[in-house]
């Protein structure tokens, strides 16, 4: 599956379209980690930020950019975008298989993608 733009538009979400995620020249590992792949095909930026904010409220100990980044990609993360994306996508799938899910802002998400949303909401506050 091709990684799509960060926004999936639906006539029914009635959420305002902001700018899609732009890649920039070389996004930081943190920025890459803040993009939940599958979820970003269903939800727009606002919804992702809301889910992220809700997660941070539920888990205040993780309400920190560095902590979230470390939880997602570790301290010595590869800077290779495709490696980080693949690693996170695998984690998301593993989370669902092992029951590591969380309900945040109503969404049933993997713990990894919920953290990605949380990181996104901090980076784009």
């Amino acid at each position: 599956m091709q990684r799509r733009t960060f926004i999936h538009l639906s006539a029914y979400t009635a959420l305002a379209l902001a700018l899609p995620f732009t890649e920039g020249c070389s996004p930081s590992p943190e920025t890459i980690a803040s993009r939940p792949f599958l979820f970003s095909q269903l939800a727009d930026k606002k919804a992702i930020a809301e889910a992220g904010a809700a997660y941070r409220k539920q888990f205040p100990k993780e309400n920190d950019k560095t902590i979230l980044s470390n939880l997602l990609i570790g301290k010595n993360a590869s800077r290779d975008k495709s490696v980080i994306e693949k690693q996170l996508d695998d984690h998301v799938l593993d989370d669902f298989k092992t029951g590591k899910t969380v309900t945040t802002a109503g969404w049933v998400l993997s713990i990894t993608e919920a953290r990605q949303c949380a990181l996104y909401s901090i980076l784009n506050a």
Binding site: L38, F39, D95, F96, G99, V108
Partner: peptide
């Protein structure tokens, strides 16, 4: 259902 849908990687569920 949300968890199982995540396993098949087809979408997500949102509770009302």
């Amino acid at each position: 259902i949300g968890k199982e849908l995540g396993i098949i990687d087809k979408g997500r569920v949102r509770l009302l």
